Simulated scan of single mutants.
Amino acid sequence: MNEKDVDKQWEGLLDQLQQLVGKRPADLNAVLFLIGVQELGKGPIRFSKEAKQDLMHIAVCKVLSQSGYYTFDGLDKDGWPQWILAKPVPPGDLLTQETFLKEHVIEYFQSALV
């Protein structure tokens, strides 16, 4: 998928999320946070700054697991998902990495809606 296609699909996804949650996510980090909360499965509770970072990490692992970059390793003692890096994530500049993540986030939501 080229960058222009990703941007178009990304905007459509943000529109869908706005209808779903009542507020348009500001950026990729906000969408990753939503995915992390969903994957944690504990509902809408207050999270510390550190926990929010952990939620975004969970989201990155989850969306990249679709392409085999991470493997689910179970839950820790507090019920948080744990992931193992299965293969190196391709290197790239910031824009390339953001586009790469957006593609995977779009795929995540497409598979969730099927």
Rank of each mutant, 00 (worst) to 15 (best):
Q66V: 07
D54R: 15
L20G: 01
F33D: 10
F47V: 15
P90H: 04
T99K: 07
E3T: 14
V31I: 13
I35A: 00
K102F: 03
S111H: 04
G43L: 10
K52I: 11
L34N: 00
D54G: 08
K8W: 05
G12S: 10
Q82D: 01
Q66E: 08
Q53L: 14
I45C: 12
V60G: 05
S111W: 00
D76A: 09
A112V: 13
K4S: 12
N2R: 10
K23I: 14
L95D: 11
Q18W: 01
G22Y: 07
L95N: 13
A30K: 12
T96E: 09
V89D: 05
S111I: 09
P44S: 12
F109H: 04
S67R: 11
F72M: 05
Q66S: 08
D7N: 15
D93G: 15
F100K: 02
G74D: 07
L20M: 12
L94T: 15
L75S: 04
V114E: 00
V31W: 04
D78L: 11
K52T: 13
D93F: 12
P25E: 02
I106H: 03
E39V: 14
G79E: 09
K49S: 12
I45F: 08
P81I: 07
R46W: 08
Y70S: 04
V60P: 02
D93I: 13
F100S: 01
A112P: 01
D73L: 00
E11Y: 03
G92D: 06
C61Y: 02
A112Q: 13
Q66K: 10
N29A: 12
K77Y: 11
P90N: 01
D5F: 01
L17K: 09
L34C: 00
V114I: 05
V31S: 08
N2E: 11
Q9W: 06
V21A: 09
L40A: 06
G79H: 12
L95E: 12
T99G: 00
P81S: 07
F33P: 00
I45L: 15
T96Y: 02
I45K: 15
P81Y: 07
F72K: 02
G79I: 01
E3S: 14
Y108R: 01
K52L: 13
P44I: 09
D93C: 12
Y108P: 00
G41D: 12
L32D: 00
E107V: 11
Y69W: 05
A112C: 07
Q18G: 06
G43Y: 06
T96I: 00
N29Q: 11
S48F: 13
A51P: 01
L40P: 02
L40H: 08
L40Y: 05
I35E: 00
D5Y: 02
G74I: 08
I58V: 15
F47N: 12
D15T: 14
Y70T: 05
E11L: 11
H57A: 11
D54W: 00
L75C: 04
L28R: 11
G74L: 08
A86I: 03
K42L: 14
P90I: 03
C61L: 07
G36K: 05
G36L: 03
Y108E: 01
F109W: 02
L40M: 07
V31A: 04
G43N: 07
K62G: 04
S48Y: 10
